[in-house]
């Protein structure tokens, strides 16, 4: 049992970490580099001249290859972490009589995306470098609470029965947003709004694709004949 759990999680984690890195380097990291031009002041938007126009374009992301290797390594660690939790969820679901395969695995993966990226992003949107936010520890606490409540809600929708269970599930998922994420009373953004918006949408889209891949691969390796 333990061997099957660990090997499935490692295989799915490494495969999805690799694919997530490829997607991030293609679609997300260039926008991080572009955001850093504004974070460092190398490029100014609404500068002293008052011009609201800034050139579109990012520097090469390969000027420091070590940085991309770090991103690759950290993606392997992070997506393996997600994979271990997902596989533990599969094992619990199978004990409750549910079957897991590649397709249901992908749906589990998309639920992971909802719980770990989409729901927290509704309060704390993905941050372009240079964004100023509320106190970090407070934001991390709200993030964790939101992930836990959303996971609980999704779990109740999937495994609960009856109107009361579904009602509690909906309340759990709404609660963190009713409380509200920690935020500042001032906007500090130095980057163009278009760049920030594009970045947030890209980060979420790439995360959704990566989670779908993780779920499908995890479902396939978990359900393979021993």
């Amino acid at each position: 049992m333990l061997r099957h759990l660990l090997t499935s999680a490692l295989l799915a984690g490494l495969a999805s970490g690799l694919l997530a890195t490829v997607l991030q380097l293609a679609f997300v990291v260039p926008l991080i580099f572009e955001g850093e031009l504004y974070e460092t002041g190398a490029r100014l938007h609404f500068s002293a001249t008052g011009s609201p126009q800034s050139r579109v374009g990012h520097p090469s992301i390969w000027v420091e290859p070590a940085r991309q290797i770090g991103t690759f390594a950290m993606n392997l660690v992070t997506w393996s972490g997600f994979a271990f939790i997902l596989i533990a969820g599969f094992a619990m679901a199978e004990r409750a009589g549910r079957r897991i395969d590649t397709k249901s695995g992908a749906i589990w993966g998309l639920c992971g995306f909802i719980a770990i990226q989409l729901a927290p992003a509704a309060g704390l949107p993905p941050e372009l470098p240079g964004s100023v936010g509320a106190d970090l520890a407070t934001r991390q606490l709200w993030w964790m609470g939101t992930v836990a409540a959303t996971m609980g809600g999704l779990g109740l929708f999937a495994f609960g029965r009856g109107a009361i269970a579904y009602g509690i599930a909906a309340l759990l998922m709404i609660l963190p947003h009713a409380i509200g994420a920690p935020e500042l009373d001032t906007y500090y953004g130095v980057a163009p709004a278009e760049l920030s918006a594009h970045y947030a949408a890209r980060a979420l889209a790439v995360a959704a694709a990566s989670w779908a891949i993780l779920g499908a691969v995890a479902g396939a390796v978990w359900s393979r004949p021993a």
């Binding site: 991030q24 991080i32 990226q117 949107p125």
Partner: peptide, 16 residues
């Protein structure tokens, strides 16, 4: 933080 910086930003973890 430094090694994980871009990964944290890319997957929307609260970073700094």
């Amino acid at each position: 933080h430094d090694v994980a910086h871009d990964t944290r930003h890319a997957i929307a973890f609260p970073c700094h």
